[in-house]
Design a binder for these strands. Structure first.
Lengths: 247, 247
DNA sequence: ATGCTTCTTGCATGCGATGCAAAAAAGTAG
DNA sequence: CTACTTTTTTGCATCGCATGCAAGAAGCAT
């Protein structure tokens, strides 16, 4: 359908999901189906209903043609309640993105002895990539498989600047956390600039390649293929592309 | 004061500045002071007045505390008129960013014979960098020196997610154009993925390093120093950081 | 001046988002 | 089951951003 962002791919950041009121995004950790009380259970149900409703509506209509009131209506709650689950209309679209980032950060945490900084970074990125580009149902969050918010984001990203901007900002925040984690894994060997430059180079190279190719061909079959190619370019072929010659 | 974005640094994209009505951003090209009629002159004056008013207000107050109505009032026009000069409140903050991108794209156009792809890219980036990080008055647009929107962006960028998002989106669009230009400069030697990966790696590495360092120390004296360091890391030290050893 | 074009302005409208207080539901005793 | 506390939902009012429209004002030509 549409085209632009590998940005949404690598996930958002650690922003608190609960706006003001109590009914936070979801009963925090506590295993998938360990709802202790009826309260927690209904909160989870409402949360999922809102995401589900949003996914369906955004699949069928443009971003600006879907009102928060309509999402809430389909989910069976009042408009006001929506904003006690998500701080903005935009956020419901990124409800599933915390998982990938946490995976990547986890990879960063357990580092293999002989590994180089780039090794570690690449391993973390590789682990997050496949889940980021599968157009199928996103990683099931909390037992009930949510609809593919990734697919919706992918389509809305070239049609709606606001979504593209939000995706890029979240990707940026993820890079900050990854940089910090990489620096923490190699406190002796890396400076802050080196860690951040490495993370930015790999994530930036991959995401820009995917976005660029999607802009050329919106119906690109395999985006993860492009992502892995770009990864290799940044890691291996960069010196070669720095050698002068006549093209 | 504040902290985050080298993003705003590299400028925005080719988005049309005029929303709906005629009174576009500014009489397009036609030299600094070649106003042919009274119409064009007043348009330019109003445009600059709006930017000036916005810069002053955003310098003194937070983004959300400055209403469009107030900006228009200070500029001496009606609220409605603001939106015939800028499509949104956000856009007035990025009124000066087209210059740097055009500079970089221009550098891409005239390529030196023996130059490698990385050479060319680095030259283009190097040319855009200094202008991007000087906290002084931005590049004077059209004769009258406008106040430093860069400084305002820098401060608002860590306090206002919306601005950070907008800056990242514009940087992303700039990367798209740079990728296309680089590919056009080396049609035989580069694939689309390679060109995009290169651009993304360098811009991503630099911007993430600057943002990361600014997050650690908001009052960092010389951001361009960090930028050039990051550039060298991506270009030269990447292979070294890929060699396994005990840290 | 007479018209034509272009820009400005005010008005009405719709939507996103927040604060507040009342109503409803869940949880906890007794 | 009843009474009481806590939490969640809801409606309502409000504000700001943004757009469309039509009337008015200003530049501009003949």
């Amino acid at each position: 359908m549409a085209a632009a962002p590998a940005a949404s791919a690598l996930a958002p950041a650690a922003s608190a999901s609960a706006p003001s009121g109590r009914p936070g995004g979801r009963p925090d950790s506590c295993g998938p189906r360990a709802a202790r009380g009826l309260r927690e259970l209904k909160k989870e149900r409402t949360h999922d209903a809102l995401v589900q409703a949003a996914a369906e509506l955004f699949t069928a209509h443009d971003y600006d043609d879907v009102t928060v009131a309509r999402i809430a209506e389909v989910a069976g709650v009042s408009t006001r309640t929506f904003f006690s689950y998500f701080p903005s209309k935009e956020d419901v679209l990124f409800a599933d993105t915390h998982t990938r980032l946490e995976q990547a950060l986890q990879s960063m945490a357990d580092r293999v002895p002989g590994e180089s900084p780039v090794d570690l970074l690449v391993r973390a990125v590789r682990r997050a990539l496949p889940a980021s580009f599968s157009p199928g149902p996103g990683p099931e969050v909390s037992g009930s498989a949510l609809p593919s918010l990734y697919g919706v984001r992918l389509r809305l990203n070239h049609s709606t600047p606001q979504i593209q901007a939000g995706a890029m900002r979240r990707l940026q925040e993820a890079q900050q956390l990854l940089s910090r984690a990489l620096l923490a894994a190699f406190p002796e060997r890396l400076t802050a600039v080196e860690a951040a430059a490495l993370v930015g180079a790999f994530i930036g190279g991959i995401s820009n390649a995917v976005i660029f190719c999607l802009a050329e061909d919106p119906d690109l079959p395999d985006t993860s293929q492009v992502a892995f190619e770009a990864l290799e370019v940044v890691r291996r072929r960069l010196p070669e592309l720095d050698r002068g010659a006549e093209g």
